[in-house]
């Protein structure tokens, strides 16, 4: 199971789970998901896919607080370090 979660992982999972938006390949690290066109349900789907692929459990409130790709990538990596290969 992978030990690092990258921005490209996030891009791929967004694409697979919720479909493409125009800006996904651009400089999106600090743009809000909402402005990228991914609403809360898309993030729920994204979180669920990250959890099963990377074997982490993400706290709902922490995910809700991660408004940008940078914040979500950091959150997932923190969990990967804290609870490595739990699954």
């Amino acid at each position: 199971m992978p030990t690092v979660f990258t921005l490209d992982d996030l891009r791929r999972i967004l694409r697979e789970g919720s479909g493409e938006t125009d800006d996904l390949d651009g400089d999106i690290l600090d743009l809000e998901f909402e402005s990228l066109g991914y609403e809360s349900l898309a993030l729920l789907e994204t979180t669920s896919r990250i959890e099963r692929e990377f074997g982490v459990v993400l706290d709902d409130e922490a995910v809700a607080g991660a408004a940008t790709p940078r914040a979500l990538v950091e959150l997932v990596n923190t969990q990967l370090v804290a609870a490595p290969q739990a699954g």
Binding site: R15, E16, G17, S18, G19, E20, T21, G37, L41, E45
Partner: peptide, 8 residues
């Protein structure tokens, strides 16, 4: 339709 609508 846009790609965003297809998975849903």
């Amino acid at each position: 339709l846009p790609s965003r609508l297809l998975p849903q």
